[in-house]
């Protein structure tokens, strides 16, 4: 009996998928997709700056800023929901709280195997980076993301057509000869803005140093400027000093690699979806979207895991190891 019901459910879902595919083909034929204007920097929604600081410059309302604010609102709401559900039922949380318990439990176990006794100190950074990036990368799934926005005059633009009473218009897949319009979306993927990824990488790398200092005191900096052996054993002392300088450079390289790994993955996903969505608008974008979800989750985990591993390395201490030898 149960089996038969299951079979019927599967058949039902199959018809939904078929209907969506047919809808997709019809929609693509009726309304051809338009190649969006691709730009590395986040687009400004309002052309005038919000405010101006004397040395730093103008501040604009960019679309990735709106998406960031939306992301934080969603995270705060979910945190409140988890807290409520935790208060109601502290033993076995239900629903979204259960999901987050599982996630946090997994992250904590991972931290404990790597960081050992410093797990409690490293864990909050790992967990918050993973949760923020999970939401940042998966927000792309909201319909209308990167596709609803303001129309802006442009030299290589497209023609537009008014919808209804003219408040909303849609782009047509026809290149305008003298100054058409391009779309500036209201929301843009948060991690496709270099400012966001740089800020996150700076936070991660600075906190790696802070945790290193908390664990080893001032001796943490001996890792970078290593003059301990330079008088006792001149040759090896000099080599140690140069290795220390390389460590110093690698700290700065960490910022770059954190920044561009996340940005490159998410931005290439955005460009891939945009280009493939114009060339092959049927079937393929759905599969690619699934792949992008996978990439987003993996990149969130990788960013957090690397932060955790580097923090664990910073706590271990360079000096104590040599004394043991």
């Amino acid at each position: 009996m149960e089996k038969a019901e299951k079979k019927w459910r599967w058949g039902f879902h199959r018809w939904i998928v078929l209907a969506l595919i047919i809808l997709n083909v019809v929609a693509v034929n009726l309304y051809a997709p338009v190649q969006p204007h691709i730009q590395v920097a986040a687009e400004n929604i309002i052309t005038e700056p919000l405010f101006t600081l004397p040395v730093i410059g103008d501040f604009y309302l960019t679309n990735s800023l709106i998406a960031t604010i939306l992301m934080y609102i969603v995270i705060i709401l979910i945190a409140l929901a988890v807290r409520n559900s935790w208060k109601k039922n502290p033993v076995a949380p239900k629903g979204i709280a259960g999901v987050f318990e599982m996630l946090v439990d997994m992250i904590y176990n991972m931290t404990e195997t790597t960081a050992g006794k410093y797990a409690a100190k490293v864990f909050p950074w790992f967990a918050s980076i993973v949760i923020v990036l999970l939401f940042a990368n998966l927000m792309k799934l909201i319909p209308g993301f990167e596709s609803i926005g303001v129309l802006r005059h442009s030299e290589h633009g497209y023609e537009i057509q008014a919808l209804g009473n003219g408040t909303w218009s849609t782009l047509l897949n026809k290149e305008a000869h003298n100054g058409g319009y391009t779309l500036v979306p209201f929301l843009r993927g948060v991690s496709t803005d270099l400012n966001f990824t740089t800020a996150l990488a700076l936070i991660a790398v600075v906190m790696i140093q802070v945790i290193g200092v908390q664990a080893n005191g001032v001796r943490y900096f001996e890792k970078f400027i290593n003059v301990r052996n330079i008088f006792k054993k001149p040759l090896f002392g000099v080599i140690d000093f140069i290795v220390g300088l390389l460590e110093l450079i690698s700290e700065f390289a960490k910022i770059l690699s954190f920044t561009f790994r996340l940005f490159g993955n998410m931005f290439s996903g955005m460009v891939l979806l945009a280009v493939v969505g114009v060339m092959i608008p049927v079937f393929l974008p759905s599969g690619l979207m699934l792949f992008e979800v996978f990439i987003g989750v993996i990149q969130a985990l990788v960013f957090g895991m690397l932060t955790m591993v580097f923090m664990a390395q910073a706590t271990q201490g360079h000096g104590a190891e040599e004394e043991q030898k």
Binding site: S257, F260, R261, F263, G264, N265, F267, S268, I298, Q299, V302, L306
Partner: peptide, 12 residues
């Protein structure tokens, strides 16, 4: 993820 980052730099 580490080795893919190199390819991603090229992509950037």
């Amino acid at each position: 993820a580490f080795s893919e980052a190199i390819a991603i730099y090229c992509l950037v």
